[in-house]
Design a protein around this nucleic acid. Structure first.
Lengths: 230, 230
DNA sequence: GTCTATATCTCGATAGAC
DNA sequence: GTCTATCGAGATATAGAC
């Protein structure tokens, strides 16, 4: 039940506190940006593994290569830091959704969406897992977003899917269940990466495994959606 | 960032500590069972929401209707309690796997598996979420299980699937990706229930929604697997 | 801006009365 | 078996020197 220590990042943040005051304004600003980013990156790594309550500022600060007091100079509280991290990942998470477009035909839209989402699972697995943690906890911070912006966006995409099936491009299906299936299958490779690796010995970082994942899911779903004359 | 209080269960545990000593041996044993179960149920509810580190014994005890000290009389430590809970849910989680059997034909096996797994997602959503939490955190306690028993079981089922496609019952597919897809799509409705509800307004507790979920996923995957002459 | 020191709080676990 | 009281560890956040 002990926490595994994350490997400390080789941060570029300077250890000497006085040095920054000798920097020019632009260089100082740059330094602040770098440090802020290092802290947010470390925070994402820790929060996405242990959740909000399970993470300590000490742990995050150590990973970022700064002192705990210094971290609290840049982010006024743990809550504050968490909210910044959560905000950053949302954009990443929702981006591939744009691939589902009425301007494109069904098959290539859906294939493209699966590919993009799996690439997100490969490139930002921590973001996917933190999002999943939030959902499991009942999304206390994201509930308003879910019920507002996301809900609206999903209903729009549902219309696009409905139009595709009405036009005979794909078989009739409840658009919501299709969207949930697309979400579930693609996120699974990030959220359950330990399980995937334990069983297959591979991860999405392996190019051939990514390729085979994309192709298998694409063909399963595209064939599943093929219009069939009864 | 405050924790929402779970509604306290109307526990049947007695408030009067002296009463139990007047019970007959069998009744006393029964009382211990009831209390142990109440504590484990509450622990599952809390652990599955906030994770191990995010949960407090105080919270669990309150939900179970016992004092914190009393809880620690029945379970020697927080770790101890957590392990008991985790052990209990594993059997539930792995049970539907048996539906994938070489004795049955592919289509009805897979349809049955999807149905059973979605019913588990409906009946034991907390178990599913706790399992998901463990995976996200790198499965510190389950890693040996994943790499041993589960891995072996999955490889067996993969052979069954391979046999089905070799026999032409289903189209060729990587059995592992099919298994992952089955897991992902069915668990999603438990793990992301907040999101599902925010978007559709429904949960698996709604019979019609469950039915439509089962049917949509079944037909998507079964059609996706239909052998096609090229 | 960065550090050390510390105030304050929460939590797991124990001690001891009943 | 159950309770109250409390200890000690660890966490967030602040104070104040430099």
């Amino acid at each position: 039940m002990t926490k595994k220590k994350l490997v400390k990042a080789d941060s570029s943040a300077q250890a000497d506190g006085t040095e920054s005051s000798s920097l020019s304004p632009s260089r100082r600003q740059r330094s602040v940006e770098l440090k802020t980013k290092a802290i947010k990156d470390s925070a994402l790594a820790v929060f996405s593994m242990y959740g909000f309550h399970g993470s300590s500022l000490e742990q995050i600060a150590e990973l970022a290569g700064v002192s705990k007091a210094n971290l609290l100079y840049y982010f006024s509280s743990k809550d504050d830091l968490y909210l910044y991290v959560l905000r950053d990942i949302l954009a990443v998470w929702m981006a591939p959704f744009e691939a589902l477009s009425a301007d494109q035909d069904a098959v290539s839209s859906i294939k493209e969406y699966i590919k993009q989402k799996l690439e997100v699972s490969r490139d930002y697995p921590q973001a996917s897992r933190l999002f999943c943690l939030e959902m499991i906890q009942g999304a206390p911070l994201l509930k308003s977003l879910l019920e507002g912006k996301l809900r609206k966006q999903v209903r729009e995409k549902a219309k696009v899917i409905k139009a595709w099936s009405d036009a005979g491009q794909i078989a009739p299906i409840d658009p919501f269940h299709l969207i949930f299936t697309l979400w579930a299958t693609t996120q699974h490779y990030a959220d359950f990466h330990v399980q995937i690796e334990a069983i297959t010995g591979k991860t999405l970082d392996n190019d051939r495994f990514l390729k085979s994942t994309v192709e298998n899911i694409q063909s399963l779903i595209i064939n599943g959606l093929r219009p069939r004359s009864e």
